[in-house]
Design a binder for these strands. Structure first.
Lengths: 191, 191, 191, 191
DNA sequence: TATGAATGAGGGTTCATTCAT
DNA sequence: GATGAATGAACCCTCATTCAT
């Protein structure tokens, strides 16, 4: 505990506040108060709260996607579309269990940033998810012109609809909702 | 001109500023200056700038959707999926021609609000779009369990991806993008 | 009293503080506290404290010079150099009686600004002092190539030395000092 | 190089920054960064940046005056007023060639301090300049009551006017300006 | 000596909101 | 209804100074 760097404490304090109040309503004063740290300390480590947010988003997103793929590897799922659906469901369940995360990454003003970063993560040639997808398309001889765009659109469809369902803007349980998503994804994969 | 109520002038001044600078960077001072009205006057008509924004969003959205359906009625489009795609394309083209509107309804913090309002508009039993959709599903004997959810998801898919394409987060022209959307919609309609 | 505008109160409060503590050590908070006015009110009237200072300097300088010339007009001083010396002595005495004014216009960082403004005042074709000087040079057939520069340098000599004497940087009474200045001025006027 | 004490490095780093940005806009962080030294180290050697500045001013001023007198000694200038004028011109030229020095010693808030220090330097019985002046007055049998005051006033006149000319507050080249100064000095020396 | 992370008082500035006119 | 001067809480950010290592 005591060896946690102030930087780490600031990150986790900000995370809690962002998920609770959203980034716009969270002030730097709130963050340093929660971290029991002086105001100036914040500026030793972050330019402003948006830079801090970016770090959190990248960190959190990578964590979710990597966990999803790790979980996938432990299963024996053969069919490509089932693999993709497994990953999608994993992400949906994760967010559904920790819905406050949406409060932090998209409620206020940051859906744009979030997507931009996630697009980087998904589209990055180094990412396991992207590799998985490309390999699947190839091995299954899928007639997909531009796999990157398709993957991106899957992500968009999932995140946008998932967001609405989880935040109860539409009266649908997450499990009632999943089949719809699965169908869309299958059709996007031309299977 | 001179008989325009102050309220109307405030709405149109705010609209111009919101599309130009986004709502967060627009101050009430900016709005009343543009409207050539005193600061106190603002509070005679609106609780705060977010209430004003809500009004604008509803007004603007209804305008777009109603225009879309009016345009549809002038064409002789027989097939149901083509009708839906026509409406979708109409909306996409509208936003693409006036992308500043995204600056106002989603760039900052308001995609959530926007969707909530639009959901109301789409889902409202009184809306022409909803009626059109229901009638189409029935007449075509489509195997769609819950038409409302499907319509909602179409909207989500269109808006989320459209937003990314128009704001150039993904390197794809709006016309390259349309076929993807059309395919998804067709599959969602089980046709 | 009650009809004094907040602007006027801010100006006079700032004047007191500037003369007491210098402008650099005076904060906007100090000024509004002294004026018993809210902080925001300051920004209704002044961009920052330096703009306020400029106004004070111009106002105060014009006051001094105009008083000097008015006093001169009440005397019957014939000789040109005596007229100039009268004005110079008037200014020296004024500052000597209210030396705190130097604390405000030159102690901190503002000698430059002060001089710039005074140069404008002195050199301004509309100023009585400048007219007086030009007329004197002409009527007395003085061999002065560039009267404006000469007037400027008289001002510099007086203010620089006067500043040192009054602020006791040199151990000399103001009256012991005057003859030196008079001699310099006479020599500068080539009389 | 490597044996330069941290103290010396701090002084020269501060000098560079003061001449470039002025003392007020130079932070202690700037200084220690430039000196490649830790922040705490600054406080081992200086109370604050103003104490450091004082040292620099004294050091620099002595350097200039001593150089001026050394240069004088290499010339064969007989007449006393020519000697003084030589020194004055030397100083003027020096500042004119390195005007950034004014940025450091007077632009911000320090003309007062500077003059105070210089007055000490000039008036100090140990200074070569003062000796030179006293000797000259005596040998030439000049009717100058108080040589110290006269020397001080020469300095004031030169520095004040020189400052205005070099910083372009008055539209006059340094060479057009010199004759005016020379005349004033001659008259001050009663020659 | 030397370090540099940590501090926190304090500055400038913005702006939604009120209220006497 | 309409005004706009006044308010003051709230914010971001800087930076001289300290102190445990």
């Amino acid at each position: 505990m005591e060896d946690k760097s102030k930087r780490t404490i600031l990150l986790s304090s900000a995370y809690k506040l962002f998920t609770k109040k959203g980034i716009n309503k969270t002030t730097i004063q709130d963050i340093v108060d929660a971290a029991r740290v002086a105001k100036g300390t914040f500026y030793l480590y972050f330019e402003d709260k948006y830079k801090l947010q970016e770090e959190l988003i990248i960190e959190k997103s990578e964590e979710i996607f990597n966990n999803a793929i790790d979980a996938l590897n432990k299963k024996q799922i053969k069919k490509f579309d089932d693999q993709i659906i497994f990953v999608v469901d994993y992400v949906i369940d994760y967010i559904n269990n920790e819905p406050a995360i949406l409060n932090f990454i998209s409620k206020d003003l940051s859906l744009g940033i979030y997507e931009e970063k996630l697009t980087n993560i998904i589209g990055s040639k180094e990412t396991k998810l992207y590799d998985l997808f490309l390999k699947g398309v190839k091995e299954n001889n899928l007639k997909i012109k531009n796999p990157e765009i398709t993957l991106f659109m899957i992500f968009e469809v999932v995140s946008a609809t998932c967001f609405s369902v989880i935040t109860k803007k539409i009266d649908l349980s997450i499990n009632e909702y999943k089949p719809y998503v699965h169908n869309i994804i299958k059709s996007m994969l031309n299977i």
